[in-house]
């Protein structure tokens, strides 16, 4: 187990090295001069040259990368080029918990919704319930999140006033206030994820329910629900688990729509704003941390396979 973990951490290093270089290169190759972006047009050329020198942009790209990487390893991701030129690491570390919380909450809600629905659906394969659930998941999937988000805001925030508007409340300030703020955006995220989860888990369950060991469990007199929960669910959840890891990764960095709708200071809006402003250190730093979170989560998922399926565990003789 420890050997496997070390192996995976080694992979993490390789992935991060590749991602960081790719991101660095990509951002460096974006057309447009950061100096112009910062100062605006119409300044004397020397001013631009001086600023470029200050930002290190006059150095060869490999040097700049190694400098940046050295900084990153010591926890310094540089400074934003947009006033007030705050440290990238601070901004990212402020935004990451918001996104992580949304992603985790959204995925938990999605699973809480998807697992019972998928089991119900699979147990009634081809029946009315199954078809109704199948149709609803399609319906939910076909509604874009900005629409469902707007509708929920209209009804639950503006109409009924169940959920607050306005400033995000950090966990450190008030846990209930924080949850109150996070719940609705998490629901918006959860809706489409739950639809996908339900479909995936249902189809895996349907296959598992045809297995001999399910029939054998029934033949031992196990009640149907116990067979579903106790025998069929675990061997059916590999695809769901994989999907969960992938979803988490993408939710960390790309819930821009939901973050914008609910005015949340998360990673998505951070990256998008930075990219619009040509704030390349911010984009680089944020992307690096998103990649790190993504890989770490998926390492966790890989280890969880061992829990789900003993056949993938190393044999202890």
């Amino acid at each position: 187990m420890t050997r496997k973990l070390l192996l995976r951490l080694g992979e993490l290093v390789v992935v991060l090295a590749l991602v960081s270089f790719g991101v660095f290169l990509l951002v460096a190759l974006i057309p447009g001069d950061p100096a112009v972006a910062i100062l605006g047009e119409g300044h004397p050329p020397e001013d631009y040259a001086a600023l470029r020198a200050e930002l290190g942009l006059d150095q060869p790209i490999l040097n700049r990368y190694l400098d940046w990487l050295g900084g990153a390893l010591t926890g310094d991701l540089g400074h934003s080029i947009v006033p007030p030129r705050s440290a990238v690491i601070d901004r990212v570390l402020a935004a990451l918990p918001v996104s992580a919380e949304l992603a985790i909450l959204g995925l938990l809600l999605a699973m809480a919704l998807a697992i019972p629905l998928a089991m119900w659906s699979a147990a009634r394969e081809g029946g009315l319930v199954d078809r109704a659930i199948g149709a609803s998941t399609f319906a939910v999937l076909s509604v874009p999140s900005f629409l469902s988000g707007l509708l929920l805001i209209m009804v639950l925030v503006n109409g009924l006033g169940w959920f607050p508007r306005g400033q995000w409340v950090r966990v450190s300030e008030s846990i209930t206030g924080n949850l109150h703020h996070a719940l609705l955006p998490a629901v918006v995220i959860a809706l489409s994820e739950a639809a996908v989860f339900t479909r995936i888990l249902r189809s895996d369950l349907v296959v598992t329910l045809r297995e001999d060991f399910v029939l054998a469990a029934r033949a031992r007199g196990m009640p149907r629900w116990r067979v579903l929960v106790g025998d069929a669910l675990r061997p059916s959840s590999f695809s769901l688990l994989t999907l969960l890891g992938l979803s988490f990764g993408s939710l960390i960095g790309s819930t821009v729509i939901v973050e914008t709708l609910f005015a949340l200071p998360g990673m998505g809006s951070l990256v998008v704003n930075a990219a619009n402003q040509g704030d390349f250190p911010m984009v680089q730093g944020a992307t690096l941390l998103i990649a790190a979170a993504y890989v770490l989560v998926n390492i966790g998922i890989d280890l969880a396979y061992g829990f789900l399926d003993p056949r993938t565990r190393r044999v202890h003789a």
Partner: peptide
């Protein structure tokens, strides 16, 4: 409730009739 105390079945393939997890 009959399945077990009254009547039980042994299946053909022991590779598939036990839950792998």
């Amino acid at each position: 409730r009959l399945w077990g105390p009254e009547v039980a079945m042994v299946f053909q393939d022991p590779m598939t009739s036990l839950n792998p997890t």
